[in-house]
Amino acid sequence: MLSKRVKENFISYGFLAPFLTVFLVFLAYPVIYSIWLSLHKTTIYTSWYTPFDSMKYIGMGHYISILTDVEFWWSICLTFCYGFMTIPTGIMLSLLLAIFLNNQIKFKSFFRSAYFLPNVLDLLVIGIIWILIFSPQYGLLEVALRNLGFGGENGIVFKNGILGNPYLCLPAIALAMVLKGAGFGMILFITAIQNIPQSVYEAADIDGANWWHKLRYITIPLVKPIILFMVITGTIACLTAFTEIYAMTTNTGGPTIQVFDHTLKSANLAGYHLYWNFSEGYYGKAAAFSFVLLGIALLISLINMKLLKSDK
């Protein structure tokens, strides 16, 4: 006869078992395995069908080669640029929409749903929609700008389309992602704003605040947790950005660009670069790369939290 306590323990572990199984198989094992992987290299004996067999231990070799690789630093640079293009604008746009749609305006619910809608679509679908908008010759934007008279003599505004232009490709992707994400941020901000009692704004009215004071000294400080949340999730989204690049550059990493004497891909973000390494069969290097990215993500999140910490 088991004691009651042991029995209860059994039952609790029973309930935990499904999660633990999934966790061990799909999370713990891959993480540990990829650490192992990051310290190994494929050899001539490694066959295509058993890719992880017969690998050779090379210690920190991958890490050293990554950190001395121009393409790596370029991808990190681009990722930071992408972050600066998407995160602040995304937050500002979300907040603006939230403030706007929190007022008593007509068709409020319609606008809220409309702005949120892109979030239910897959990134690939959104990518394709934007390709149609940005494409050369018959793209929506091209045609619109042409009709507005922006085209040159031959009526062409963007020769290779916006996504074919190395300087516009990444900003265009950023724009698409900001617009896609704004609806989600908007919902978060609306919820936070609605949690601020109306009387606080009335007190501010009486204290002599105009709309800007109220935004600056009341709304923004009180939605700071949402801003922090969006900065952190945004940072992670940038570091792992892959689908949008894959979709909108049709798996090329964007048009090439000449930087000093290196030919580099103009939308080759870190996440996409990682995928590219993997798809080319550099499993060890890709694994090492993922840990470098993890380190960067942790570092940035830490800095974010320090900077944006809501006091006490």
Partner: peptide
């Protein structure tokens, strides 16, 4: 309201939750 030179104490106090007592009074 801001030009009427009145002050109001609300039933639920309506203090600015993110400001200290001092900042609330100084606002």
């Amino acid at each position: 309201p801001k030009d009427r030179d009145i002050a109001m104490v609300f039933q639920n106090y309506a203090l600015y939750p993110h400001m200290s007592v001092k900042e609330n009074m100084a606002f």
